[in-house]
Design a protein around this nucleic acid. Sequence first.
DNA 1: TCGGCTATGTTGGGTGAGCCAACGTTGGCC
DNA 2: GGCCAACGTTGGCTCACCCAACATAGCCGA
Lengths: 152, 152
Amino acid sequence: MADTDHAFQPPARLRGLASWQANKVSTLGARLTAQRMPLSARADFAVLAALEEYGALSQAEIGRRLGLDRNDVSGILNRLESDRQVDRQADPANRRRNLVTVTAAGRRHLEELQQHADAVQAELLAGLDTAERRQLQSLLAKLLDSHKPQPA
Amino acid sequence: MADTDHAFQPPARLRGLASWQANKVSTLGARLTAQRMPLSARADFAVLAALEEYGALSQAEIGRRLGLDRNDVSGILNRLESDRQVDRQADPANRRRNLVTVTAAGRRHLEELQQHADAVQAELLAGLDTAERRQLQSLLAKLLDSHKPQPA
DNA sequence: TCGGCTATGTTGGGTGAGCCAACGTTGGCC
DNA sequence: GGCCAACGTTGGCTCACCCAACATAGCCGA
């Protein structure tokens, strides 16, 4: 069993790299997510969550809050708008900006996606107990906070 | 300052998702990496590390150890082989398989990439102290171990 | 011995994320 | 009024991940 155990182990040089570990966890999360919904729903969830928490936002603000590029935000909003989950209208106070708001359908979709997201988290973190999960999330949060100025 | 502090915060629904956090850390690592080398060097590093630690491997074994698809391994090896960092020859004992080995140039390149990788880790983990770094890496390792059967 | 099954490596393609460059529009500032 | 910055859009590029199909080669049981 020790044989089969170490047979598929990644090399030590990678197991020690936090960036490699994080990348693997990330694609693991993507795999689990893809089993429940189209992968593009991840971006939808992020945008809807931002609008639900902060109210009307311009596209540039959405991008800054989520760490996304302006053009990517544009594409996501096109999809969401054609599904009537989001409302996009010119800001009368500043005609450069589009004020984006969630619709009732968008809120419903957001809650639905939250269910799937919670299920994915449970699956992803299945190997950790409650204390370890909180520890991991808090360490990741601290790491991300320390890189605040990350304007994608 | 509290105003500017919360101005670019991601929504709480995302801050609580371990998969979202891991994804952000992963792209952060990719960004830091890209500042020092072409991004494709990450795959090169992984393959070279596997060959250096485990000796001659078939392409399928490389893929299983690193969580990569067979076709992607193929492409990476084409690049490495044309750079003379890797040797690919038919296994006499099983002519379906290619036995892949690192060359001296490959080992040199691996050490060089390791330097850059270490620098990236230092930058990525700058916000955590030594104990927190070890804790984070061990939690990520435990999480990945709990998902062992992940044959990409 | 032969037929089916699996493993291997290759090619080609498809999607999504992340990023950069360019453009026209609009606002703010001197 | 003129310059610079911000905004949204379009188009394009690279990379990671994944799926399908194919030909070759080993395995194993009938």
